[in-house]
Design a binder for these strands. Structure first.
Lengths: 211, 211
DNA sequence: ACTTAATCCGAGTAATTGCTCAGGTCTACT
DNA sequence: AGTAGACCTGAGCAATTACTCGGATTAAGT
């Protein structure tokens, strides 16, 4: 049974074994790098285990020392990226809250931060979200949405004096969801004939007007 | 060369031959039905040509009478669905414009129309947009976005008296893009703990407030 | 130096699957 | 009835690819 008999859709993401020595840590990193790079360049179908191993400069056997199957390799590579995005977004929120000219200045800074973070990884995320069937089964992907909500709620609480909502929590949730949707769309399906700057400004305007 | 040597990413969508007799038309329909159904139920990887043929009750050879390759079968099935969505959205806009209580009433009707149209095909669209690598190469997919823009601009022109924009065309474009993004997200990644009704209302509120 | 465990290697295997082709069957038309 | 061409059949080929396994190499601990 070389190939999985049928789709083993209970995604097994746990790494088989943790790299203990530094040499091994480096190879695992190389594997993740290779996986991400190939995914970005060739698309999901282009990611073959042999190809990843070759690009990482290791043998196919080594791949399977640390990952139970192909999906877990891709998942791990994406998880790493998603974690970084979450960190960046958190940082950008912290700065945003410390800015003068609230809420407009804060919102502006934050929106731009999120856009930048996604756009840096635009191509990879595009492929990930459009082609990787198990993308939303990656814990870090779900976490990111939750993190955003937590941050948004936190931001609202800290700016409570300058904001006025009817149902603060729900309204914040919805607004966040919609902004996030718009940003994702913008980055993922970049409409050609409208500048990112223009879009950002409008989005910030809208949110400000609605608060 | 049984399998395409490498990804033939110049998507060949043209049907090889048009069905002329009614019998053939029925089989082609059966093929598209089968493709859509399998795509929805098993995901993109679950769609195999043999499987589609079997589900359609025809032999594999017949499939290749009308379609040049696997991708074109899936593309055709999705194109059919996307065309129907476009029609429904157009109709719903027509009704919306004839309603009293503009612009709010119209917007409400239209938003709901779009949501319904997507939600009817929720599962299929989810798979299509998340897993089908060439989804945005299907002409009807691009068309739909354009159609929406045309309709939005048309709607704006017809309601010019009650609306006030700074840069009407661009503002309408952006608003439409964002609403569409939000709706897509909502339908595609349905957040569990918020009702569709609540979301729709908020969206309509937002748009109304912004006009 | 020696042992133990971690790490790495890569040819080979079994399964999958897109698609062809040589021929059959049905339909429309004369 | 005859025939051209539309329509359908399905066994099987050729290519691809996830993953295994027996063994080699390197590092850590003593």
């Amino acid at each position: 049974m070389a190939r999985p008999t049928k789709k083993p859709y209970i995604l097994d993401l746990e790494p088989k074994k943790r790299p203990a020595q530094p040499r091994a840590k480096a190879t695992v990193t190389a594997m993740l790098d290779a996986a991400a790079q190939i995914l970005e360049r060739e698309g999901y179908d282009g990611v073959t285990t042999n190809h990843v191993a070759e690009a990482a400069g290791v043998s196919i056997g080594s791949l399977y020392e640390y990952f139970p199957n192909k999906q877990s390799i891709i998942a791990a590579a994406l998880a790493r990226e998603l974690g970084e995005i979450a960190d960046e977004v958190k940082t950008s929120m912290r700065t945003a809250l410390s800015l003068p000219d609230q809420p407009r200045g804060g919102i502006d800074h934050w929106m731009r931060g999120m856009m930048l973070s996604l756009e840096k990884r635009g191509k990879l995320l595009r492929v990930a979200m459009r082609e990787v069937p198990f993308f939303w089964d990656i814990p870090q992907a779900r976490d990111l949405s939750e993190t955003l909500q937590h941050i948004a709620q936190e931001g609202r609480r800290k700016s409570e004096r300058v904001l006025h909502f009817e149902d603060p929590e729900a309204d914040t949730y919805l607004l966040m969801t919609m902004c996030w949707a718009a940003i994702q769309q913008t980055v993922l399906y970049r409409p050609t004939h409208i500048s990112r700057e223009r879009l950002t400004r409008t989005l910030v305007d809208m949110v400000t007007k609605l608060l």
